[in-house]
Design a protein around this nucleic acid. Structure first.
Length: 347
DNA sequence: AAGACGGGGAG
DNA sequence: CTCCCAGTCTT
């Protein structure tokens, strides 16, 4: 892992934020690109948010990148641009919780601090044959305690990484490779033959099927086709990313309802047109069928000369493609780009 | 204590 | 399909 070769606090911090709820293999290309563009805390602090989001596009949990940006500014103003090495100060950085603070300081500074995340939760649950789900309040406290008592006199960073890697490669959620485990003789669950039952089931939020619509509005301006788009508002899904017109707040029953929603947004009547494509995707608890429709402003001649009401904007496809988009937004943009090339004469 | 927040890897 | 991922923050 690239952050292991030069484990400066900044490197480890960036890697740990990227690794939150994200597998190592997914993170690797993102980490490399990030370090090429933002090699220091100062570079990160000075960067445009949109540029950061563009680097994060596809990784998910976009609040992580905005928190990191804020944290970098905090490091510049409160710590003279030097990543803090005091636990309380690290924990005070936005987006840094107990896990990340412990990981950064143990790995980058040799601090004797425990970590507890998906892997070590499972490893230590089996280690002590913990029967209750690790997310249970008392169980979670106990596991943190085990993680702390496990730590060697020195080399906590290496130990923590080894414990996580044991979970990722050997002590698997299903069919753990106990025969290959270097410590299975000390494992209480293995001794009792309870590897399959531990850790206990974690309650999951039920999936919800949902239909949504994206409405593609275009106009000709300055010899190029422009599309209506907007940055998504703070606090919700994909905050800070750009999107084609789409109601992300609630399910939409029909394309006409979607057009009605957009009409309200714009203060101009919108008519839905033909379906261009349908994308299936899952986001948090929703499994979404996203129908992408052509749409038009009912009084296109008037509206075409006006600027769209904020936050909506008319943007050329080339511009859109430089902006940070959700994965579905990116798919729609690529679809339109291909469509643009093959059917240019039609519109 | 529970829910929101993304997207993909792996079986 | 389902489960899970080097979690954090807000109700």
């Amino acid at each position: 892992m690239p952050w292991r070769s030069d484990p400066r606090p900044y490197h480890v911090w960036v890697s740990e934020i990227m690794l939150q709820q994200t597998q190592v293999a997914t993170v690797l290309p993102y980490y490399r690109r990030w370090m090429e563009s933002f090699p220091t805390v100062a570079d990160l602090a000075a960067a445009d948010e949109s540029e950061l989001m563009r680097h994060w596009e596809g990784l998910g949990y976009y609040r992580r990148v905005r928190s990191m940006h804020a944290a970098a500014k905090q490091i510049m103003s409160e710590h003279g641009g030097e990543f803090p090495l005091q636990y309380d100060q690290v924990l005070a950085l936005p987006g840094v919780g107990r896990y990340t603070a412990g990981a950064v300081l143990s790995i980058a500074a040799g601090a004797k601090l425990p970590v507890l995340e998906g892997n070590t939760q499972r490893v230590y649950s089996r280690w002590i044959a913990l029967r209750v789900p690790p997310t249970d309040r008392a169980a979670n406290k106990l596991l943190w305690d085990v993680a702390a008592r496990m730590l060697p006199r020195s080399g906590s960073g290496q130990f923590n990484q080894a414990a996580m890697e044991l979970g990722a490669l050997v002590c698997l959620p299903k069919n753990p490779k106990c025969d290959q485990c270097p410590v299975h003789h000390h494992c209480r669950a293995a001794e009792l033959g309870l590897q399959a039952e531990i850790p206990g089931k974690i309650k999951r939020i039920a999936y919800e099927d949902r239909t949504e619509f994206a409405l593609i509005l275009s106009r000709e301006a300055r010899g190029a086709t422009q599309y209506l788009a907007r940055p998504l508002p703070d606090g919700g899904r994909w905050a800070g990313l750009w999107d084609f017109p789409r109601c992300t707040e609630a399910a939409t029953e029909s394309v006409d309802a979607a057009a009605g929603w957009l009409s309200q947004q714009l203060g101009t009547e919108v008519a839905a047109g033909v379906r261009l494509q349908t994308l299936r995707h899952a986001v948090t608890k929703f499994r979404i069928s996203l129908h992408v429709h052509q749409a038009a402003l009912s009084n296109a001649g008037v509206a075409a000369d006006r600027t769209a009401p904020a936050p909506w904007q008319w943007v050329s496809l080339d511009q859109i493609r430089t902006l940070p988009l959700s994965v579905t937004g990116r798919k729609i943009a690529e679809f339109l780009a291909a469509d643009d090339q093959s059917f240019l004469p039609l519109s």
